[in-house]
């Protein structure tokens, strides 16, 4: 049998597709044949399900080992790896959970997958310099209205209805998980890498607005929008406090001065 045909048959066997591969190997009897092939099929499934389990420990804690393995098998069948690093095998897991019955009925699973994947993304995102408060204070007061900020590439934002952060912490500590709590309103979350360690915290609606405004507009325009939350005279102080907080959290990477057209 030609190499390409042999590899087609072997891979089809591993993927659980129709294949004549068992006839391509030497075996002393049928049992020997099946056992030898099963070593590869089992290894394929176990290896990738374990990768998924390591990437999503909280989902494993929510479902338990057995149900997680069943879920892993379904994901592997639907989303075989196209990546040369197992690091990215699980990247479609949240989407899979959101669109595949019966998991799609459980928002908790989808949210937890999004949260855990975001932690991983923050962990090995690109390195970048951090802008210090001292550097920011050197900007002339006349230029502050034109200020636009660039944030660190490790930053991930998402919104969660469930208390995924608490479930994650319990799973990390091998504690029994308490029943999840679902809030009426979704909470925005910020996940990022501080040095080499991962941090996360919730954000207020005001901070979410400011976070996006200062990246796409200017400090002056951001301040205009802050009047939704504060009296006009309070706005500069609140805006500066927010930027100080971002500096302390090592979130800001760089700045530029923009001549706003509107």
């Amino acid at each position: 049998m030609k190499l390409k045909a042999l590899q087609q048959d072997f891979q089809a066997y591993l993927l659980g597709q129709s294949s004549d591969f068992s006839q391509a190997i030497v075996a002393s009897n049928h049992k020997d044949n099946q056992q030898r092939l099963a070593i590869y099929k089992n290894a394929y499934q176990i290896r990738l399900i374990e990768i998924l389990r390591k990437d999503y420990p909280t989902i494993n804690a929510i479902l338990g080992d057995k149900k997680f393995s069943q879920l892993g098998k379904k994901y592997l069948k639907a989303m075989p790896s196209h990546y040369y690093s197992v690091r990215y095998f699980g990247q479609d897991f949240a989407q899979f959970l959101a669109t595949t019955p019966p998991y799609q009925q459980h928002l908790l699973l989808h949210e937890t997958a999004e949260f855990e994947w975001a932690l991983g993304k923050a962990l090995d995102a690109k390195d970048a310099p951090i802008l210090t408060l001292q550097q920011l204070t050197q900007i002339s007061p006349d230029n502050w209205p034109k200020l636009q900020l660039k944030f660190h590439p490790s930053i991930q934002t998402l919104t969660l209805y469930h208390n995924v952060n608490q479930l994650w912490k319990a799973a990390q500590q091998d504690q029994e998980l308490q029943p999840p709590v679902k809030r009426a309103q979704a909470t925005p979350w910020l996940i990022w890498r501080k040095g080499i360690e991962i941090h996360f915290r919730s954000m207020t609606a005001m901070e979410v607005y400011s976070f996006h405004a200062i990246q796409s507009k200017t400090f002056s325009q951001m301040c205009e929008g802050l009047t939704q939350w504060y009296d006009e005279e309070q706005v500069p102080v609140k805006a500066i406090q927010l930027i100080q907080q971002w500096c302390q959290d090592l979130l800001i990477n760089d700045y530029q001065l923009i001549n706003a057209t509107c």
């Binding site: 042999l6 891979q11 394929y44």
Partner: peptide, 25 residues
Amino acid sequence: CWTGINQLNMHDLLPLPYTEEAIAH
């Protein structure tokens, strides 16, 4: 070894047949 075809990766070190064709390849 080989690890997959058709742009898929089985993430396993799969053996090759010990043939002249495989050697040349």
